[in-house]
Amino acid sequence: MGGPVPLLLAALAVSGLVALAWAAGFRGDAQLESEAEALDLAASLPGGFAGKDVLLSADRRHALIADAQGRLVLILPHGAHFTARRCDGAAAESQGTQLALHLHDRTVQIDAGKAADSWLKLLERAQPGKARPHHVQGRA
Results as ranks from 00 to 15, higher is better:
Gly96Arg: 08
Leu17Trp: 02
Gly79Glu: 09
Pro128Ser: 11
Ser44Trp: 05
Ala112His: 01
Leu8Ile: 02
Ala91Val: 14
Leu9Ile: 00
Ala92Cys: 12
Ala68Leu: 11
Gly138Ser: 11
Gln31Tyr: 04
Asp53Phe: 10
Pro4Tyr: 02
Ala140Gln: 03
Arg132Gln: 14
Gly48Met: 07
Leu12Ser: 03
Gly113Ala: 10
Leu74Ala: 07
His78Phe: 12
Phe82Gln: 08
Gly70Arg: 12
Ala68Pro: 05
Leu101Gly: 13
Gly129Ser: 09
Pro128His: 05
Pro128Gln: 08
Ser44Phe: 14
Ala115His: 08
Pro4Leu: 04
Ala50Pro: 04
Ala66Phe: 07
Ala126Leu: 04
Val14Ala: 02
Ala23Gly: 03
Gly138Cys: 09
Ala11Val: 08
Leu122Ile: 14
Cys87His: 11
Ile75Thr: 08
Glu37Thr: 06
Gln137Arg: 10
Leu20Gln: 04
Ala23Val: 04
Ala50His: 13
Ala131Val: 05
Leu74His: 14
Ala58Phe: 09
Leu20Asp: 00
Leu39Ala: 06
Val54Phe: 09
Phe49Arg: 05
Ala91Thr: 06
Asp53Ser: 12
Ala91Gln: 13
Ala42Ile: 01
Gln31Leu: 01
Leu39Tyr: 02
Phe26Pro: 01
Gln31Gly: 01
Gly28Trp: 01
Gly89Ile: 09
Gly70Tyr: 14
Glu37Lys: 05
Arg86Asp: 14
Ala21Trp: 02
Ala100Asp: 15
Arg132Ala: 06
Ala84Asn: 15
Asp67Leu: 15
His78Pro: 12
Ala21Pro: 00
Gly16Val: 00
Asp40Phe: 06
Glu35Lys: 15
Ala19Val: 00
Ala43Met: 14
Lys130Tyr: 05
Ala36Glu: 10
Gly16His: 00
Leu120Cys: 11
Asp88Thr: 14
Lys121Asn: 09
Gly96Trp: 10
Ala63Ile: 13
His135Tyr: 10
Ala92Phe: 05
Val5Thr: 08
Leu103Gly: 15
Asp59Ile: 12
Leu76Gly: 08
Thr97Glu: 13
Leu32Asn: 03
Leu20Cys: 04
Leu55Thr: 02
